[in-house]
Each structure stands twice: as structure tokens, then as C-alpha cells.
Amino acid sequence: MSGDTAIRTQGLTKYFGRFEAVSDLSLDVREGDVYGFLGANGSGKTTTVRMLLGLVLATSGEIEVLGRPMPRSGREVLPHVGSMIEGPAAYAHLSGRANLTLFDAMAPRSRRTGRKDRVEETLDRVGLGGVDERPVKNYSLGMRQRLGLAAALLRRPRLLVLDEPTNGLDPQGIRDIRALLLELNADGTTIFVSSHLLTEIEQLCTRVGVLDRGRMVVQEQLAVLRAPTGRILLGTPEPGAALAHLDRLGRSVEQHDDRRLAVRAPDAAQLNAELVRAGIGVDELSVERRSLEDVVLAATSGGNDTFARPSRDVQDAS
């Protein structure tokens, strides 16, 4: 059973002083998942990630990573975990190669043999194989991001924990990283990505958890969240005729503008056939799905970095 679980938390809670950053959080990430951890800035994502890795100590609750309790078993667990937390960091006066070499040497029981090959191979993986010996302080933001990812991949981890991995990358870079992560996942690496970028999560992840003000509000398979709404969206050059025909057929048209209709119907192909048979052209047809954005906005309370002043009414009432 424990072999199936990559990350599991129960009742995870963290207070900074009197501020409750994370509240009664129950994460469930299974091996092989690409898990998207969504939440607005300030919702507690990074605090959670830091607790998983033993950097921040939980106020209460339990954490299990790769089947072992954290932070107690950090020495056994962390060598199998690669991570990038709140942006990359490196020793600025050294080259990327020298940085990776140092990070490799820090790991417990790290062998000197093969270190050079490990470093070169990892640089190749993230697209920095040809980088020269310039110090990291002269790297661009994108190069630093790639180097940070290289440091995370150095030991071929079973679990990758990445906080905002595409921050600062250009579109090509984002695509490279996404391809790399999917390739790693296909090789069996479990990936836990936290992000506030919905589209990024939508394109990458198989499971999603949504955090709002320190609480988990949704945790589900992406496919389930993006279930069909039961409506078919269709476009037609003859909307008037289409409306009349659909009305005759007894189908309810729930929305329409110029030439697009949202029709409640179970089967897009059947709907298409009905219209075409009546001589009405259809030039667009798709099953409407809930977008991740709809799901998240419905489940959360708006931005977490705004702190609205309590309204006068509330104060008067109290």
C-alpha cells in the first residue's frame, strides 16, 4: 500500500505566529502522478512544499513522502527527491558545472566516480550541455531556471517537487521543460508541480489539488474536473434555421449569439447528423467541458494576496 503513495499528508497545519498558513491539509499524491498543486500567491503552496521537504516544521499533522515519515526519515527519503523551491539558487561566483559538482558532492554517500559524467549528462538533459565556464551570476533568468532543474535531476529522483518551474522562461523554454517533465514521468518519475498558472497545470497534470487560504478545496483527477457539462457547442452559418429545427426536435438551446449555439444534448455526432440531415450546415462542433479556471474560481475566494479592510457594517454588527 505504501508503495503506491508518493506524498500523503494528514491534518497538516502550520502557524507562523498567530497566522495560519496551512490548515488541516490532506494531500494525496500517488506514484506515477503528475500532480498539479494550484493556488493563488500566498495561499500556502510554498509553505506546504517546504514542509514536505523538512525545511519548515509543521505545527501539527503528519507527512509521508515515498512511504516514510517526514521530516524524521529525511536522510533516507530526500536522496530520492529532487526539488526546486521558489526559484533556483546557486553559488553565483562559480560556473554552473562547478555548482552541480558541489551539489552532487554534498549528498550523503555520494561517490566521486562518475560525478563528472553525472554532471554533464544532467546539463545535457536541461539543454545546458554546451554552456561555457562563465559564473552563474552572468546567467540569464532562463539559464538559472534550467540549472536549478538540473540540480533537482542530478540523482535521478523518484519524486520531483517543483515550485513554479517555468517562472522566467520564454515560450520555447516552457515547452522544453514541459516535454522534459512528461518524458521523465513516462520513465516512472512522480512529479508534483505547484503553480498559480492554470494553463500550465492543465497541459501537464493528471491530478490536481487546489489550495485556498491554506485549505485544500478541490483534489481530483483532472479528467473528472474537466468532465463534459452535457452541452454541445456548435457553429453554423444558418443560426435561424438551426434554432427552428432544434426547437422542432425538442432540444433545448441554452445560449446563442450570432452563429454559435450551446445545445443540451448527450451526443455531438448525433446532433450533427440531425442538423446535416435537415440541410443545415455545421462548421464548428465541440463537447463543452468545464475549464480548470471555472473549477478553481468556483472553489476559491479570489486572490490570496489581497487583504480587504473589514467593512463598516461588519464592525457595527460586532
Partner: peptide, 14 residues
Amino acid sequence: AAGTLRYVLVRPVG
């Protein structure tokens, strides 16, 4: 301050 402390600790370095 350089941000490297977190990466050193998750290597893990006790």
C-alpha cells in the same frame, strides 16, 4: 540570503 541554504538542506545535508 543567497537561497542556497534550502538546496543544501534537501540534498540532504544534516
